[in-house]
């Protein structure tokens, strides 16, 4: 009886783990790539960095649903270029304060974001890898 109960516990653990592995292996081998940064993102980031001076702080503005990608851009451009992020809505004052504090002149827009800062020159960089969200880069209006 005790052995049967013990076997039941192990069998139940094995069943849930096999199910978990099946789902995870399917996801991992269908979607995960060799790098956290997809080729598209690497190309877009390289294009942006080519236009920035070393240590220049840049702004990334994104929708809440693109939060992960905004953070990826932040990590991908660091340490050459520190990145400040604005997610979702923001006021003109908070944008101005951020720009003044860090001397920000240029921005990457992902989405398009809910609130777009005014830009004087803007370049489309295509979409996020495998997603409809568009990425644009440009110089912020003074």
């Amino acid at each position: 009886m005790l052995q049967a109960l013990g076997a039941l516990v192990v069998a139940a653990s094995a069943a849930v783990t096999v199910a978990a592995f099946a789902g995870d292996l399917r996801t991992a081998y269908a979607f995960a790539g060799p790098s956290i940064f997809k080729e598209t993102e690497r190309r877009q980031m390289a294009e942006v960095q080519a236009a920035l001076t070393e240590d220049e702080v840049i702004l990334v503005v994104a929708r809440p649903e693109d939060h992960w990608h905004a953070r990826l851009w932040q990590r991908g451009l660091y340490p050459r270029n520190p990145v400040a992020i604005l997610i979702g809505g923001f006021s003109k004052e908070s944008l101005r304060e951020l720009r003044e504090r860090h001397g920000i002149r240029r921005a990457v827009l992902i989405g398009p974001p809910e609130v777009e800062p005014a830009m004087i020159r803007r370049r489309e960089l295509g979409t996020l890898s495998g997603l409809p969200a568009r990425v644009a880069f440009g110089e912020l209006a003074p």
Binding site: V9, V10, S13, A14, V16, T17, A19, A20, F21, G23, D24, A28
Partner: peptide, 16 residues
């Protein structure tokens, strides 16, 4: 050791 690794939270998902 088997009981430990047969916990999905230990061997799959965020653990990996």
């Amino acid at each position: 050791a088997l009981l430990v690794c047969l916990v999905p939270e230990i061997s799959t998902g965020s653990a990996a």
